[in-house]
Design a protein around this nucleic acid. Sequence first.
DNA 1: CGCGACCTTGAGATGGCTCAATACCAGTGG
DNA 2: CCACTGGTATTGAGCCATCTCAAGGTCGCG
Lengths: 212, 212
Amino acid sequence: MNAIAFNTVDVRPVVLDRRPATADPGVRMNYGRDEEIFGEGEASRYVYRVISGAVRTYRVLSDGRRQIVEFHTPGDIFGLDGESRHALGAEAVGETVLQVMRRDAFLNERGADAAIQALLKKFHRAQAHMLLLGRHTACERVAAFLLDFRKRAGADVLDLPMSRQDIADYLGLTIETVSRTFTQLQAARQIDLVSCRRVVLRNRQALERICE
Amino acid sequence: MNAIAFNTVDVRPVVLDRRPATADPGVRMNYGRDEEIFGEGEASRYVYRVISGAVRTYRVLSDGRRQIVEFHTPGDIFGLDGESRHALGAEAVGETVLQVMRRDAFLNERGADAAIQALLKKFHRAQAHMLLLGRHTACERVAAFLLDFRKRAGADVLDLPMSRQDIADYLGLTIETVSRTFTQLQAARQIDLVSCRRVVLRNRQALERICE
DNA sequence: CGCGACCTTGAGATGGCTCAATACCAGTGG
DNA sequence: CCACTGGTATTGAGCCATCTCAAGGTCGCG
């Protein structure tokens, strides 16, 4: 089980904030490891905010190839993909707690501003990810991935909640290539693999240089 | 590296236009081939709708690698990337006419609904593109690209406005691979290369099968 | 202690890349 | 009308980053 509760930090409004009558304060739900939150093609009625844990959103091709579109960690909002139906599937990476809101409430009542901000942010991330997938080498991808998680964690010691396979499917690589790249970065003294899920960044600047 | 030009700019604001007080119907502007519409990092004050022609939005790495994030054809809206500054650059692919609107007007006054719809659509496309870049073969990418343009054109005869280099940078391939793949598809009787910019789809179903 | 899930490592195969030559085509000037 | 030029596209040959296939290794847990 994940002893890796990604951040204890930031527990946002642990309080169901007081909010105008109509607005949906959000219900909390718990999900276990690999549990499905919603499936591709399913009606999209809710929007989710990660309270703790982590979520992956993904698409799969009929032959099993999978692309993880994004990992969501505490504070992130997801579920806005697709119009009336989800274009992506979503699963909990480890034990995860989510705040669930009605989608229409989020998009409308609540003042569309929050929705627009969330969407702009997602769109921005999507662009960066495209550049990564289209034009970066394996090493650059892994370095960017680590730096992204460093940013979320706020510290150089990362407890990655996801498996190598998840990372591979996120970066558009194979599990073997991801593993080898980790090993390489360790050999280059840029990271320390304390365990396979625990990575310490030893030389952040070098990693940043790799990504340019 | 990319064959991006330094062609002489051809007069920007060909436009004048009576602009009603608040509700912004949009000013029209013309752009010449390869002319910059906005640059990466530039303040993002406007949102654009393509009237005619085509636009590419892209990012470049310092060493010249370029990823075209999206092609925009008539009816498409772009310029919503980034928050206060553009995360992408935008250039006219060929002679292009745009309708320009103030960004804040688009996002607010105008009823955020249009903005949300546009963003959701873009986000959706971005996801599909990630799957393409991360998990598709060269052949699948080119087939998907052609089908995407077929959809926009509404006919099996496509007049592609962009160069092979543009296509390559959009699909995360090299120009040579794109060229070879076109040749292959022609050999397989799935397309006809009337000229390098004019492609006829001879067997759409086969192409769809390639993309699954 | 042994099982199962996951990760790492090795060796060989390969798709797409790089480098390089050639072809095409429109414009230009002789 | 043709030769020349510059930009773009195609084709070929060899290479290399990443993938595939396969064999161990590690670790948590019953």
